[in-house]
């Protein structure tokens, strides 16, 4: 059964339509990559899944995103509840100005996890899952800012994992990182899909090809083509997809 079903989703910034009749299904335990040139709507689409678009003034949306039996586009849903299930990792690592421990436990603490030993267990397991534990276990009280960019990004992933989410959204998570850190994050994403459903926006076609199961190509707010990643990259049906992937524009 599909994890998320998007039907006829339209999104507007004022009068400008950023998404046009987007239809898509997201399968569980897969990595779905959203690719396309800047301004094509892929990040707007990603932010629709955890309602981060709510912070942008003067926007409107119609259509539906059905997740867990609810239409999460609906104004009345509890976004705090939704964001506990749908975690997000941003383009630039944004650890909180707190210790590593406090960064990881921030979400669960907000939602009532008070017992110290449970917190410790959760921090350890989350950091392990985010492949950061070995590097930081000696000094969990160090400020999150003291880590390298790649470590900070894995800390941000651990921070999402500690919430025990269902879906993870990644908004160009490696665009601010060096190649080695990028590789670590990519390996991590492939491991994480065993337990989570992942949607990633990426500017790097190679990244999409390396890690994703499905790829959706966006252009001017429309999904031009979506399918198995291998299929899209070797045998695109639409001429525009083929041209974008081969680097002819974008």
């Amino acid at each position: 059964m599909s994890k998320i079903i998007v039907e006829d989703l339209n999104f507007y910034y004022g009068d400008v339509q950023a998404l046009k009749d987007v239809n898509m299904t997201i399968e569980p335990n897969e990595i779905t990559a959203l690719i396309g040139p800047s301004g094509c709507g892929k990040s707007t689409f990603l932010r629709a899944f955890n309602r981060m678009n709510d912070f942008i003034k003067n926007t409107s949306v119609d259509g539906s995103i059905i997740y867990d039996g609810m239409n999460i586009v609906d104004k009345d849903i509890d976004v705090v509840e939704l964001r506990m299930k749908v975690g997000m990792v941003f383009q630039k690592p944004n650890p909180l100005p707190k210790s590593i421990f406090e960064n990881v436990i921030y979400g669960p603490k907000r939602h009532g996890l008070k017992k110290k030993h449970l917190q410790k267990e959760l921090v350890e397991s989350s950091l392990k899952q985010a492949a950061l534990w070995e590097e930081v276990k000696e000094d969990l009280n160090k400020s999150g800012f003291e880590l390298s960019g790649g470590q900070q990004q894995r800390l941000c992933i651990a921070r999402c994992l500690s919430m025990k989410p269902d879906i993870l959204l990644f908004d160009e998570p490696t665009s601010a990182l060096d190649p080695i850190s990028t590789m670590k994050i990519e390996d991590l994403l492939v491991q994480l899909k065993e337990h989570y459903t992942i949607i990633i926006v990426t500017h790097s076609m190679h990244q999409a090809a390396r890690i994703s199961d499905k790829t959706a190509f966006f252009l001017n707010g429309e999904v031009i083509e979506m399918g198995e990643t291998g299929e899209i990259f070797s045998n695109a049906k639409d001429n525009r997809t083929e041209r974008y992937i081969s680097g002819k524009f974008g």
Binding site: M52, F55, P97, G107, R110, R159, M163
Partner: peptide
């Protein structure tokens, strides 16, 4: 930086959480 607020909101914070636990400490 706004990215801190966004990060906290994405973790399911309420606005009061963001003010008291993120913005004020920062």
């Amino acid at each position: 930086p706004d990215s801190l607020r966004k990060g906290a909101y994405a973790l399911g914070s309420t606005q009061l959480d963001v003010v008291l636990k993120v913005v004020l400490p920062a």
